[in-house]
């Protein structure tokens, strides 16, 4: 049971939800993404109440307006890095834009990996690809689940910085859920769950 009184993000605002394992962070993220439906209360994204949408409409809405970076990155292994990005564009129902996808990969410093397979990438490279895939259709809301848990201190800070700057560059709000206290103080707002502040 996750209880949350109210949480509102402004456009382009960044927010960290911090709490220990099992406090409901991932559930919150799934609720916001529309992958779960709340038993009580409502979730609205870009002014759209998700519970008013059918399952299919919610899938489409999520695809168009949100980008999600999971702890486990789930890049499609059968596709190249660039194809993973192009598929995200296709599923978000935005027009195919290979130039934008390549530019984004360049901005993330992995432009030369466009033709590589996910299996050939390092963990850090894979995460950048996952971030690129979550941004390539220019969503309004970027969600990240434990983006720093498997990274050392320096890389953890850099990953959060990357998420923040990239979200800002397209004017998207950013919601990060994590148990990682290293990211405290890096985002606009912090919400602590489970009294573990």
């Amino acid at each position: 049971m996750l209880r949350l009184d109210a949480l509102t993000l402004q456009p382009a605002e960044t927010c960290a939800v911090i709490g220990p394992s099992g406090c409901g962070k991932t559930t919150l993220l799934h609720l916001v993404a529309g992958l779960l439906r709340p038993t009580l209360g409502t979730v609205s994204v870009c002014g759209q109440r998700l519970d008013e949408l059918s399952v299919s409409a919610c899938d489409r809405f999520r695809g168009r307006n949100m980008g999600i970076v999971f702890q486990r990155l789930h890049l499609l292994p059968a596709l190249s890095v660039l194809e993973n990005l192009l598929l995200a564009q296709h599923l978000a129902r935005v027009s195919r834009d290979g130039a934008a996808a390549n530019a984004l990969l360049d901005a993330l410093g992995i432009g030369e990996l466009a033709r590589a397979r996910p299996a050939q990438l390092s963990q850090g490279q894979s995460q950048r690809v996952a971030i690129a895939r979550a941004l390539v259709h220019r969503p309004s809301l970027l969600l990240a689940d434990e983006p720093t848990s498997s990274l050392d201190d320096g890389n953890a800070v850099r990953a959060i910085e990357l998420l923040r700057t990239q979200a800002q560059s397209i004017g998207a709000a950013l919601l990060v859920v994590t148990h990682d206290r290293r990211i405290r103080g890096q985002l606009d707002r912090e919400v602590v769950l489970g009294g573990a502040a």
């Binding site: 993404a33 992958l35 399952v55 299919s56 899938d59 489409r60 999520r62 695809g63 168009r64 999600i68 999971f70 486990r72 789930h74 499609l76 292994p77 598929l87 995200a88 599923l91 978000a92 129902r93 895939r133």
Partner: peptide, 15 residues
């Protein structure tokens, strides 16, 4: 199954 779940997250409908 992760691939398929990811497709849904990226905006694919069940159908």
């Amino acid at each position: 199954r992760y691939d398929l779940a990811m497709l849904r997250c990226l905006g694919a409908t069940r159908a």
